[in-house]
Design a protein around this nucleic acid. Structure first.
Lengths: 237, 237
DNA sequence: AACCTTGTGCTACCTAGGTAGTTTACAGTG
DNA sequence: CACTGTAAACTACCTAGGTAGCACAAGGTT
């Protein structure tokens, strides 16, 4: 099992952060990893309703992928999830075995661990105690989607932008992570708006001194101003 | 097992429509039903973040409940799901055991079959082959939520209203079901809008002859006009 | 350097939908 | 029956956010 050992050595610390397989020890990981292989996809690889995701399940070990949706008529994009290290996809297919009508695009060069969907399913059947983790993870995703729906209905763009920024600040360094190097257009896709509008709001935040903006880059200057701003949003009625 | 037999006789046909327990035969149902008891809740019963739903799981056998969300600041409501016969709740709690921050309100007098959450969980552990059905059902709900998000981002109110109407037409009778007796306000809550705006659009549909509107009542007069209207929406750009 | 691509910043405009208010219709109740 | 509460209908108004367009800046490439 040289292959398996190697994977665990390289990616063990990432895998242990993976919610879906919470609490698995090295022995159990080695057993499961035997079914996996490593894949690398270049930046900007794009998968449009690809059967690949119906037959394989992936764990990201480095890089980012956006899972997004395109409106047939307006051709607008909406990013459903920005997947990163220790995230998995496609859970939708894993759960019900039906093809998932979404697009994928690599934001960075990507490294994933891949397993044939059926292998994962039969591993689960042999180890039914892990079903609980999968159910809990599904619950977590449902809550995220529900929260998303609520935000779309109850809050305006500037609030959604503020929440997006605040939820991506690294508490250690106080720096923006995951979305800091995205162009305005991609930020807009994340909150369901357009480049022009997002830019309008970013300019306002820049003017009040809470952020710094440059090409493909947003930096946090003062979190407290962002928080105060978010509070003011809520008070409007 | 007189109790169990009775439940199956009364509700067997409803239970067989229940996606979550797809494919279970009478014998298996009788085994499971032993853990259930029947409850009746009057119309307009309202449960606000009630612990009840953390410890019990329910299958609706008659009546409707809305699962909804309230914005703390604007106090606006949004109906996440309009649950009806053969629907279950709360799946969120079942999956991850965390309390679900939503409200429930009975639209009609309600009859449910209730089971202690832990009993259902241990039944699942003893019958792991049924995990698959639960996973598939979770997948289905995730797809519904995702579809909801897409609609909110890509389509306007009149399109959402048209889709709501069209998705609630009974193909047998060509009549509107489930939502036909709701006031405008509740229809608005279903699509994330307000009474006034929904009424504005309903008036338009009334004028073009596709529907009939009266107090607490919407009736379909001509489906083809609705479909044509939906097509026109898409062509706007 | 000259060129090209991509992203930003900003203007001016338009409209769907939210808001507030009044009037009218309806059904249930005592 | 009159009385009351609720829903529908309609008007008039306001604004956030979508749209289009352009000038400019930053990088990368040849």
């Amino acid at each position: 099992m040289a292959h398996t050992d190697e994977l665990y050595k390289k990616y063990g610390s990432t895998l242990s952060k993976c919610d879906l397989f919470k609490g698995m020890d090295e022995k159990q990981w080695n057993e499961l990893l035997a079914l996996f292989h490593e894949e690398e996809w270049p930046r900007e690889s794009c998968f449009i309703n690809h059967k690949k995701f119906l037959y394989h399940f992936f764990i990201i070990v480095s890089g980012r992928v956006k899972m997004y949706n395109v409106d047939d008529f307006s051709e607008k994009e909406h990013t459903l999830f920005l997947l990163k290290k220790a995230d998995v996809f496609d859970l939708f297919c894993l759960l019900d075995g039906v093809q998932h009508q979404v697009y994928y695009e690599c934001i960075d060069p990507l490294k994933v661990l891949a397993i044939p969907m059926d292998d994962l399913r039969s591993w689960l059947e042999k180890n039914p105690s892990y079903y609980q983790g999968f159910l809990a993870y599904a619950g977590k995703m449902m809550r995220m989607l529900e929260e998303n729906v609520s935000q779309l209905i109850f809050t305006d763009i500037s609030t959604r932008l503020l929440k997006l920024l605040l939820s991506n600040i690294d508490y250690g360094s106080n720096k923006l992570q995951h979305i800091n190097d995205l162009p305005n257009k991609e930020i807009a896709n994340l909150i369901g708006s357009t480049r022009a509008v997002v830019n309008r709001h970013l300019q306002k935040l820049k003017r009040n001194g809470s952020i710094k903006v440059s090409r493909n880059n947003v930096q946090i200057k003062d979190i407290s101003i962002l928080l105060k701003e978010l509070n003011n949003q809520n008070k409007k009625f």
